[in-house]
Amino acid sequence: MPSIDTSSIERLGETSAAWLACAWQPTQNAHEARLQHAFARAGERAYGLYLRLLFSPLARAMRAAGLAVYPPLPGGLADSREWGLADDSERQRWFWSCVVREDDEAPLGTLVTVLHHDHTRFRLPQPVQLFALPVARAAVVEQELGRMNGAFAAAAPLRLHAAYGAKAQP
Rank of each mutant, 00 (worst) to 15 (best):
A153H: 09
P2W: 06
T27Y: 07
A166N: 07
E90C: 15
P127I: 02
T113P: 06
D104Q: 13
A136C: 11
G66Y: 01
P107Y: 08
G165Y: 02
F152M: 02
S8D: 11
A40D: 14
A42W: 15
W96C: 09
R81D: 07
A38H: 07
L49S: 12
H161W: 09
G109A: 09
P74M: 10
V114H: 05
P26A: 10
V100Q: 01
C22G: 07
L51A: 11
C22L: 09
V99C: 11
A18P: 00
N29P: 00
L51Q: 15
S3Q: 11
D103A: 13
H37K: 13
A42S: 14
A163Q: 14
V112F: 00
A65C: 03
P71N: 05
L20W: 03
S8N: 11
S89K: 12
W24M: 03
G75F: 06
W83A: 01
H116Q: 03
S56I: 00
E102H: 08
F131E: 05
G13W: 02
P107H: 09
R81H: 08
S3V: 13
F39A: 11
A68I: 04
G66L: 04
D79W: 04
R159T: 07
M148V: 05
R91N: 13
G165E: 01
V135N: 05
S7F: 05
E82S: 13
E102T: 15
R11M: 13
P157A: 03
D103N: 10
E102S: 15
G48K: 12
A166Y: 13
A106Q: 14
K167P: 10
R147T: 04
G75K: 00
R60M: 07
C98T: 15
S7Q: 13
A40T: 01
E102F: 05
T27E: 08
A38R: 02
A61H: 07
P107L: 07
H119P: 02
M1R: 09
F152Y: 15
V114S: 07
R41C: 10
L124E: 02
K167C: 05
E90V: 15
D5G: 02
W96A: 11
H116S: 08
L85P: 00
R81N: 08
M1D: 11
L35S: 03
H31D: 10
G109W: 02
L58Y: 04
S56V: 00
R34L: 14
G76S: 12
F131D: 03
D104P: 05
R11C: 09
C22E: 13
W83G: 00
A33R: 06
L51F: 09
P134W: 11
V114R: 12
L35M: 06
C22T: 09
A153K: 10
Q169E: 12
L133D: 10
S3M: 05
Q28Y: 14
L130T: 02
L111M: 08
P57M: 01
F122W: 14
L20A: 03
E90Y: 10
S56Q: 14
F131C: 03
S8M: 09
L108K: 05
R101Q: 11
A33S: 10
